[in-house]
Design a protein around this nucleic acid. Structure first.
Lengths: 155, 155
DNA sequence: GAAGATTGACACCTCAATCTTA
DNA sequence: TAAGATTGAGGTGTCAATCTTC
């Protein structure tokens, strides 16, 4: 390949696409976080974990992935919620290294008290501001971005 | 309006739109942050501030808004970069309460060393994975989401 | 050795309160 | 009185190192 001579610059549209993504995410998560904290004393990450656990117990490792947290970040989060009686760790039957995390009855009550308002806010502040066609486009493109970049592209 | 009887639940598509948004943002910013930290010793927020300052000096208040930070968060960030000799505060001529922040020569060198790789990564890991039509759709919809939700919707 | 989980140290950010100037 | 900026306290997350189990 030739030398990397041309300086990389954003076009106006590229800047709108990228900066808009960052700003929209910051604005929405800040608003959701403020409401969740004020009404239920939960951070957004803590709520996401409760959401993951609402169907069935989940292993620590899978929780970390689904909540976009590092293993140690998740350990601290689970410590906090376990200390509040919202969930508990159970040794994993088929892997002695791992734990299953499950909601307590109190944790389920906390979750059920919080989920309705959260879903409505996501609908009002995000989903309802987009057209059906835009929903279709977004649902289609996100999976392409969630995949981590292949290593070696920028050595 | 009638009682809020129906529990709010996401449809499958809504979940794809919302969760995909969160996961894509987490994956991309994590990858960009790791590269920026490793190659140039800057956090993503620090780089965003340098980017804002690359054209002209900017007031603290405007920097906080453009970088999606609280005023005190920005104060700390500017303290760090000023301590490293990357930028400096200058009293604002037309408002004695405020400061203009500007890059030093060294700061400009740091910025110019970092911007090219950053732009290329955003292009490779984000923009290039989307079609021109998707670019158009995204650039059009982000402004609707960046506006903070009107208060009082969820009392 | 590799993977799951944890620990301790540390960095960054937010919040509430305060100071100064408009 | 409000707005810009800062301070100190506190919370949440990452990283590197470690322990245990596969």
């Amino acid at each position: 390949m030739a030398a990397r001579s041309k300086p990389a610059v954003f076009t106006r549209r590229q800047k709108a696409v990228w900066a808009g993504f960052l700003h929209a995410h910051a604005a929405i998560t800040r608003a959701l976080s403020e409401a969740m904290e004020r009404e239920h004393g939960l951070t957004l990450n803590e709520f996401e974990v409760l959401l993951c656990l609402s169907d069935e117990p989940v292993r620590m490792r899978d929780l970390a992935t689904r909540a976009s947290l590092t293993p140690s970040g998740l350990t601290g989060l689970i410590d906090r919620l376990e200390g509040r009686g919202i969930l508990r760790r159970c040794p994993c039957a088929d892997d002695g290294r791992s734990y299953l995390v499950e909601l307590t009855d109190e944790g389920r009550a906390v979750y059920e008290a919080a989920v309705d308002g959260h879903v409505r806010r996501v609908q009002d502040w995000f989903l309802a501001r987009l057209s059906a066609e835009e929903h279709r486009v977004l649902a289609d493109l996100w999976p392409r971005l969630a995949a981590p970049p292949r290593s070696g592209v920028h050595p």
